[in-house]
Design a protein around this nucleic acid. Structure first.
Lengths: 239, 239
DNA sequence: CGAAGCATTGAAGTGCGTCAACAATCGTGG
DNA sequence: CCACGATTGTTGACGCACTTCAATGCTTCG
């Protein structure tokens, strides 16, 4: 199961068999989490991180008044809270959106690995930096793109990220989000997210029902989104 | 001059004299950059990073249509593009907003330091993770806060970050931005940024002229902003 | 001194939010 | 297996925060 994580790592850099063994050995335990639970609350002290092996998770921040912003979605292969390795507590909640399988990785083992294999340390540092790049693209979306373009952009991003870990089909991918959750990712109200979705449907770009997103016209979607996957830093590199 | 950077590091963790020497020795050269220049373009190959010693810089992303979003402002003591150490090219531009003094740090020296002093490596990893936390707070602002609250929040954040490096006064701080640049940070048009600024003035919360921001009522500003500095991860910690 | 950038203002338009209602679906217990 | 309440999706009417366009004076600086 952890191979999905190695697949994601190896999309970006070489991981030797020895390093792979070390990474596999870092997992203390595998856990099944129910859907729709907050698994980490902002401010909690942490000494482990969670590797998402199956399912969907989200990071979110709330205003005092209750408005919620999802700052990142996580798919199989992602470390959901690798940044907790250095931060030790988070500035946001982490929640499950579906039932999830996660591997628990204690920080002392991560420290071991990163000191014994600096290359792996840089690969993980790199991974948190890609998260930051995803945040920046999101700031561009929230600040400058229209609701339609923003939603199209999110779909394009998820499509690519899922392809990397072999979780997308030729015609789309599973996306087990409610429209409320979708709206919280996009900084929209549910009502407007619904209307935006309808407009994407009307333009024959996507279908979305029962937790499945069907992409009817990927180029068209990417056009509306002004999508350029460069910020995802795909492809092999020296680290 | 590089002491401002050490001051920022030491706000969060211990740095030994030996580590300090290594960090100082990592600087290959110090450079003076003119104001309002793009110094790094998205996609450029990089093998050095820039430590900002004096002045203001910004990271920004543009849509094809020309709309610009500033994703982060940098002040003295910040590594403006430390993430380039692992990413090797950026997904955004980096520009000067004022005349800037920067120290150039080659990546091979950074690699040396991080391998010889894993603690310093984690401190720098931590620093890029705080950048990501700032991005997340910005996503919350752009997605959920009103223009007024968003502007107030930016001012609160900068106030705290400048205090850490001793660049703020009791009554405010220097902020050499035009209203256009300010609007690009906030995802607003110049016109509306201007009106929002006037509203903050009208409410006797801030003054802003000639590149100086005077904070008249800090608590009031923080209230409007729903500001909680936890996401800046201030205070000493083990790394 | 002129040109260019910057701050400001007014008037008018619109994308998205708010409120409210209802339909469809789902999960759960009886 | 059905009944039921709760959640989710959808629609309409209306309002408002922010945008757009356009004009004007103010700085700044070569």
């Amino acid at each position: 199961m952890i191979s999905v994580h190695l697949k994601k790592l190896r999309e970006r850099t070489e991981i030797s068999p020895e390093q792979e063994r070390a990474i596999r050995a870092a997992v203390a335990e595998t856990r099944l989490l129910p859907a729709d639970k907050i698994v980490i609350r902002a401010g909690e002290e942490l000494n482990t991180s969670m590797l998402l092996l199956e399912g969907w998770m989200a990071r979110s921040k709330d205003l005092q008044s209750g408005e919620r912003q999802v700052t990142e979605l996580h798919v199989a292969g992602d470390f959901a809270d690798l940044h907790a390795f250095t931060l030790k507590q988070l500035d946001h909640d982490v929640m499950t959106l579906s039932e999830c399988t996660v591997a628990i990785v204690p920080h002392d083992r991560l420290q071991d690995i990163t000191e014994r294999y600096p290359h792996v340390g840089r690969a993980y540092w790199f991974a948190t930096n890609v998260d930051a790049a995803i945040h920046r693209e999101m700031a561009l979306s929230l600040g400058q793109r229209s609701a339609l373009s923003r939603m199209a952009h999110l779909f394009c991003e998820l499509y690519v990220r899922l392809e990397v870990v072999g979780r997308a089909n030729r015609d789309g991918f599973n996306l087990p989000l409610t429209q409320r959750e979708l709206s919280e990712c996009l900084g929209l109200t549910v009502v407007h997210a619904n209307r935006t979705l309808q407009e994407l449907r009307r333009r024959k770009l996507v279908e979305f029902e029962k937790g499945k997103l069907t992409v009817l016209d990927r180029r068209g979607l990417e056009g509306i989104a002004d999508f350029d996957p460069a910020y995802l830093y795909l492809g092999k590199r020296k680290l």
